[in-house]
Structures are given as structure tokens and as C-alpha cells.
Amino acid sequence: MHADSQGAWRGLSIDMCRATAAALFGDASKVKYIPLDAAKRFPALDAGEVDLLASNSTMTLSRDAGADFAAIYYYDGQGFMLPRKLGKRVVGDLNGSTICIQPGTTTEANVADFFRQNKMTYKPVLIESVDELRTAFFAGRCDVLTADLSNLYATRAAYAPNPSDYAILPRAITKEPLGLAVRHGDHQFADIVRWSVYAMIEAEEYGITSRNVDEAVKIDNPVLKRILGVTPGMGKALGVDEKWAYNIVKQVGNYGESYERNLGANTVLKIPRGLNNPWRDGGMLYAPPIR
């Protein structure tokens, strides 16, 4: 996520906030964004400073016990980037490599565990500052840079001298499901957040986009009618307006539209959808039925 040239926030996680606002108030712009750093975000949620945390936080048991994760909106994982000219295509080829790692998170323990499990060796170069680490990698001090895949794609797009010279290996060695968290016990709000994300996923599955949603309401299909509130009941059950999902798709778009706009092939990031494909296309996006 980032602020664009007009100062408006953009990003997949921002779209999740906008979708929630569209369901709740009928207006996607009714969100107040508060930037927080990694250490302060969960205390800030707990203290009521924010109501919804959309800050690329990995859902884990210990975090879910303190806050409530309403939905997972992106499947990330720790991966590896290396110069294409080295000719390595799979993670198993990395035996004996030198790896640039930022210390201070679980990243280095993950690498150590993965290499030991696979009876491979490596040499770490740990540099605290992210800028210095990046420079060292692009200068060739290490063969490989490791971080979350989304982070690697962003690094390659923004900092590589020539992005096409660098390959990001397809396999992730950890599971990093990024979730939307609400305060512990805030059940009704958690439901609204959860189904706002599901509505975006369902809309993509049924081919409803922000452009064709006005035609879609006229189609005589019981599933579409329920989702878009033509047949009432779903909004009432959730405690929001019956046109909640219509508003989400109309104002924010379906999941695929949001993905393409923020991370897809036409953006600088160019992140392949991979695990974030709909389940029919081999991904993990699977929304329970809206009925």
C-alpha cells in the first residue's frame, strides 16, 4: 500500500478497507487511514485507536488469540530472488549460496530451518538496514535475497538496476497469510469485514465486475440476486444495507479487479497471482456461499 500522487491511499489492503466501508456505510470513501509501525499496530487496535487492521499482518495463532482475524485477503510466503544469469530455477538449487537476510524477524530462522531440513548449506549476510541490505544484494555481495514474496516483487520493481535480470523463485518456504484483524470480541464488525472480502471473491467467481454490475442485477439468476441484494435477506442477516455487496463491487470492484489494479501485470509490481487465484484456477481464494 502507498499514497498516490494526490495523497490518496492505494493498495490491496486499502481496497479491503474501502470494501468494508462500502458495505457498512454505502460509501467506500468513508475510511480514515492511520499509518502504524509494525510494533505498534496490535496495541493500537487493542486500544481502540483503529477498528480494523489492514497492515500486511500474518495471521498466527498467538495473534488471533489477542485480536480477531476476520479474513485472509492475501496469501504470501517467504521466497528467494536471485540474478537470472545464475541459471537456478528451483529452491533446491540454492545449496552453497550466500544469502542476504534482514535480521530481526522470523526470516532468518525460516531460512536456517529450511536449509537444514533439506541438508543444504548457505552463508548468511545479515544487515540491519533494509537499504544497505538491498545495495549489498544488487552489488553482488550475495547470490540470493530472501524476504516475503510480495516484498521481493516490490524490491525488484523499485530498486533493481534492470528488473528483468532478476528471477523470483516460484516456491515459498513459509506460509504468510495476510489477514484483516479487528478487536477481540468485536463479532458483528468481524462478520461485516469477513463477508466484504468474501463478496469480492464471490463477485470474481461469478464474473461480476464494477463495469457490468448494473447489468448483473437484471439477470435472472438466484445466486446473483441473493449476492447483489435483489432478493433481500442477506444484508439484514449481516446487519447492513441490502445493497451492501452491490456497493462493494460498484465502488471497489471484485477481488480480481483490485488485484490487477494494485499488484497485477500492468502495475510495476507484476506479481503473478499464484496462490491468490480463485480456487477454480488452482488458487486459495474460496469464499463460502452467500445465502
Binding site: 535480521p103 524477524t105 544497505e132 541490505l133 549489498a136
Partner: peptide
């Protein structure tokens, strides 16, 4: 050393604290 990635005492301790 921590700034340029030499694995000195501070580096070892930092990782240990983190883990």
C-alpha cells in the same frame, strides 16, 4: 559492525533476543 553485517557479539545477541 551491525551496520555492515559483520557477525560480531551484538549481531549474535540481537538474533538471540529476537528468537
Amino acid at each position: 559492525a551491525i551496520a555492515i553485517g559483520y557477525p560480531d557479539l551484538v549481531a549474535s545477541i540481537n538474533v538471540t533476543i529476537n528468537q
